[in-house]
Design a protein around this nucleic acid. Structure first.
Lengths: 127, 127
DNA sequence: CGGTATCCCATGCGATACTG
DNA sequence: CAGTATCGCATGGGATACCG
């Protein structure tokens, strides 16, 4: 369970080590930009600039920041070709591709329920 | 595609209406607390306080805020029993349960790759 | 019990500018 | 081309207190 701690003793109110790590990973990865990057990379390899074009609206800063984070967690591989100008390519690793299944699920879900959600919003906001 | 806009004309640099709505939904839902709430609700029904207990570390404020957001998007149903003290129950709707599949996938993924990720982090941070 | 409001610090994120 | 650094506003999010 990610939602609650595994209590050891009654006074152990903290998360277990595994759970606190899981929570950290969730905090890192459960964010809009990370998902969009994973979805954009897909099975292929993209350069920094290509990613920036692919993901409409992402800023230079957010892209580097999230790529660094994904690299740190071992979800993307970063290949630097030491040429001038530099050429840096990003690819999903095996864990990254595994997560991509869930991310694609979310994307598909969004498409499927788009109208449904819009209707729910209108109903809610009407009050 | 959620990652890029569907260009109509050359000068249409904005997202299409459907894509901008999809992006909005992503922004709402791709967040740690929303996922933890969805996972905690599961197939059942939980009261506000029970949810708070289930999701270790969530504050009163974040719980209400995210529940309101999920209700607005039609992912959770909110049943108010007008008694004293009040009794408010939350349940996933059909779209909510559909999204839960992807969320559970993410949770499973986290468990499966926990060690792998920790190792990747240590390697990255060692530099 | 559950919701709302307020205060205040931490973080997200865009804009801009500089480097190799 | 890609990365880093800095600034500054906007939002996230905890703590506390008060209302039905």
């Amino acid at each position: 369970m990610v939602t609650k701690q595994l209590r050891g003793t009654a006074e152990d109110a903290d998360l277990s080590r595994a759970d606190s790590l899981a929570r950290e990973i969730f905090t890192d990865i459960a964010n809009k930009w990370a998902f969009l990057i994973i979805e954009a990379l897909g099975d292929g390899t993209l350069r920094f600039g290509a990613l920036r074009n692919e993901i409409q609206g992402i800023s230079h800063k957010m892209l580097t920041q999230n790529l660094r984070m994904l690299e740190r967690n071992g979800l993307v591989e970063r290949d630097v070709h030491p040429t001038v100008p530099p050429r840096v390519e990003y690819t999903l690793t095996e864990p990254g591709r595994a997560l991509r299944a869930a991310v694609s699920g979310m994307c598909g879900w969004t498409q499927r329920y788009l109208d449904h959600i819009e209707a729910a919003r209108n109903r809610f906001d009407a009050v």
